[in-house]
Design a protein around this nucleic acid. Structure first.
Lengths: 349, 349
DNA sequence: GTGAAAGCGCTAACAG
DNA sequence: CTGTTAGCGCTTTCAC
């Protein structure tokens, strides 16, 4: 009748461990943190007691008196946006190796809760915070961070601030590299497909795109830079239209993975083929494609599309590392870390 | 020379507030938690002091003495997997409305860190934990949860346990509903495309699929249930092969969004069309498509593919709500919450 | 090397 | 309605 049942409900504290090991709480604490010089023998005894009792140190209490909490806060608008999910994963990877953990908050797609998120993180005693969607970051929060001396770094998709640490991809360079790649493969008539007018990311990329065109003395055609809904079908249609109305176009730079995928099928739909024909047998018209992508291993691998990537995961890595540094040295001037793009050639050029 | 500079670095405590407001700490505490009945006047005075000083309550200290921490722990293998990201977002939405927050941990794609994640959450005093990837959940962790009396619920993609709360989609029913939908639209030769052999989710769906076939007296064809790489191109090829080798097939159930998308283009690639022709002019062969999808608003909307969804976000909602309930009433027997599927008809059938 | 004691900021009795 | 007081579990001087 399950009488000898484990009544273990009582919370086990450092005191219990000390008792069990026949030492003082101080000693246990010292062993836990590896600080004071403890004799090998007692250390072993203490550890054995910890094991036996299944003791788990109460971090809340620990940080109350001591210094850091080993918790990092993250604010994103919505974690289900792949970019932020990827950044979060990257941050997690770094933190993991450092015995630190991640506090996740979502401020909503409109950023409404940003202030509340920040206060929340602050209240829970995080050692620093990383903010994803920098576009919502306002001066109130920045000031608050300064007031409570809470390190704040921004993991962004585009350039945003100059008064805090920012980690971001080099959109402009990425576009330039991609465009040059196309030019070097003989393309002279290049279009840019996708994105919305108001997007900073798009603006930066178009900047790089134009820069490359100008540098190589190629014509600059506003009507070849077309916005479109990012969904595949829409992109496919847009690509098809673009190609039929402008038969001279031989290459398209695609604003994101789904656009590239759409364009891929759009090109096929026009009866053209994608990529360069290695055998130099130019019987059917070919269109080259390069897509921008945050998430290397994803959709673009199959069909094999050449793409230019600024890994969101790496942004997460850098942001985490930067924050950790800043926690150590809070008074350094803020810096921008701009991640270079990587071009992955895979046959569609 | 910035001499009168804000020296606000000192941490502001409840005591400071009490002093500033000319009341005792108790009163402040009471105002903060809205517990004791405090006179309107003092409440206002206290709030004013809080405002003036920019006081932020130290949650760590609060929970040390009091009960809950208002923190919920989440363990997923990798937050960048869209399913988990979506679940996390759903959880966040619920918690947000309750003044609670989310602690995110990642146990790695192989689940290696599961134990460590759990201990971490436990150490930080979460009120309960939601585990995503249940497939990694082991008895050690379950026992540990019981020992420390930490409510544990599992937000899963498929059925996994019976000794803890589980929230999961009804894969079998979803497949059944989808299949019946096809049958009712006159289809008799239906294939299932995608997924990997070892997948529990797939097994459950195939179960529902077969059940529906049998129920309607339709033939059961193992060779029409084909596995395939989930990437688009692979799926497109697989669909094309399937259709050319088996000309009698008129409908395909697709294991996930990317497979459906691939199949869509695969069908077009064979020269057939997708969907039902409303004008009853059956000149070209048509193939109907239904995809499974976790994320309603995503890829399947365009092209307009009919799909059957078990919203990952809703799983997050339910999991959060269930956990909150269980925190209130820890001794209820564990229950399974099985979310019904939703069929969204959009023209591809 | 190890222990005793004083808090960290807050809440929860119990008095007034 | 409001104040006094005693801890929550842990770290950290400062003695021994």
């Amino acid at each position: 009748m399950a009488i000898g049942w484990s009544m273990s409900s009582k919370k086990i504290t450092i005191t219990d461990v000390a008792e069990h090991a026949g030492v003082s709480v101080t000693t246990v604490s010292l062993v836990l943190s590896g600080k004071g010089r403890i004799s090998e023998k007692t250390a072993v005894r203490v550890n054995k007691a910890i094991e036996a009792l299944g003791y788990i140190r109460n971090q809340q209490a620990a940080m109350l008196r001591g210094g850091g909490s080993n918790v990092i806060g993250l604010i994103v608008s919505d974690i289900s946006e792949p970019f932020y999910a990827e950044v979060a994963a990257g941050i997690g990877e770094i933190l993991d190796g450092q015995g630190k953990v991640l506090f996740l908050t979502q401020c909503g797609r409109n950023g409404r809760n940003l202030d509340r998120c920040f206060d929340s993180l602050s209240a829970y005693g995080v050692d620093g915070v990383i903010i994803g969607s920098g576009r919502f970051l306002n001066d109130v929060v920045k000031q608050k961070a300064r007031d409570v001396r809470l390190p704040l770094v921004c993991a962004a998709r585009a350039s945003e601030f100059d008064d805090i640490d920012v980690i971001r991809p080099d959109n402009s360079l990425a576009a330039k590299v991609a465009t040059e790649h196309l030019i070097k493969h003989g393309h002279r008539q290049i279009a840019y497909l996708g994105g919305e007018g108001g997007s900073l990311t798009r603006a930066e990329r178009l900047g790089g795109f134009c820069a490359a065109l100008l540098q190589y003395g190629l014509p600059f055609r506003p009507e070849w830079m077309v916005e479109c809904d990012c969904r595949q079908q829409a992109s496919a249609q847009a690509a098809q239209e673009l190609l039929t109305h402008n038969p001279e176009i031989t290459a398209i730079l695609c604003h994101k993975a789904s656009v590239a995928l759409g364009a891929y099928f759009g090109v096929l739909g026009t009866g053209y083929t994608v990529g360069k024909d290695n055998n130099e047998s130019y019987f059917t018209r070919q269109v080259a494609l390069i897509g921008f992508g945050d998430v290397p291993e994803a959709e673009l691998t199959n069909p094999p599309l050449t793409f230019i990537s600024s890994s969101a995961r790496e942004i997460g890595h850098s942001a985490a590392n930067r924050l950790l540094q800043r926690i150590e040295m809070p008074d350094e001037p803020p810096q921008h870390i701009i991640l270079p793009p990587k071009l992955i050639a895979r046959g569609s050029v």
